[in-house]
Measured scan of single mutants.
Amino acid sequence: TEEFVRLWREAVRHNQTLHWNGTDFIPGDEWAEEFARREEEKL
């Protein structure tokens, strides 16, 4: 979602874990980066 992408970019900028829907998205984590890339492509 647009909100997820916005929060993810913020988390990456501050190198912080994003807690989203009970899942931890960690900047630099391969799975999280791939998920975020797919979400961005949907926008």
Rank of each mutant, 00 (worst) to 15 (best):
T1K: 08
T1P: 14
T1M: 14
E2V: 11
E3H: 08
E3F: 05
F4Y: 02
F4G: 00
F4Q: 00
F4T: 00
V5L: 15
R6G: 06
R6P: 08
L7M: 10
W8H: 05
W8Q: 06
W8A: 05
W8P: 05
W8K: 01
W8Y: 02
R9W: 13
R9T: 06
R9P: 07
R9F: 10
R9L: 12
R9V: 07
E10T: 02
E10I: 06
A11K: 01
A11W: 01
V12G: 00
V12A: 04
V12I: 10
R13G: 06
R13V: 13
R13I: 14
H14R: 15
H14K: 15
H14P: 00
H14I: 13
H14T: 15
N15H: 09
N15F: 07
N15W: 08
Q16P: 02
Q16S: 10
Q16D: 04
Q16V: 14
T17H: 04
T17C: 15
L18N: 01
L18Q: 01
H19W: 07
H19T: 13
H19C: 08
W20N: 01
W20Q: 00
W20G: 02
W20P: 00
W20I: 06
N21P: 01
N21H: 12
N21M: 14
G22C: 10
G22S: 06
G22Q: 05
G22H: 06
G22P: 00
G22N: 10
G22M: 04
T23Q: 15
T23Y: 14
T23E: 12
D24K: 08
D24R: 05
D24E: 11
D24G: 01
F25N: 00
F25L: 10
F25C: 05
I26A: 11
P27Y: 02
P27E: 00
P27H: 02
P27F: 02
P27G: 03
P27I: 03
P27V: 03
G28E: 02
D29A: 06
D29N: 11
D29S: 09
E30A: 15
E30M: 12
W31G: 05
W31P: 02
W31T: 06
A32V: 02
A32F: 03
A32K: 02
E33S: 04
E33Q: 07
E33K: 04
E33G: 03
E33Y: 03
E33F: 04
E34Y: 06
E34I: 06
F35S: 02
F35D: 02
F35C: 10
A36P: 01
R37G: 05
R37N: 07
R37Q: 08
R37D: 04
R37T: 08
R38G: 10
R38E: 08
R38I: 12
R38D: 07
E39S: 13
E39D: 02
E40Q: 11
E40C: 14
E40W: 13
E41A: 13
E41P: 02
E41I: 11
E41L: 14
K42P: 02
L43M: 12
L43G: 05
L43C: 14
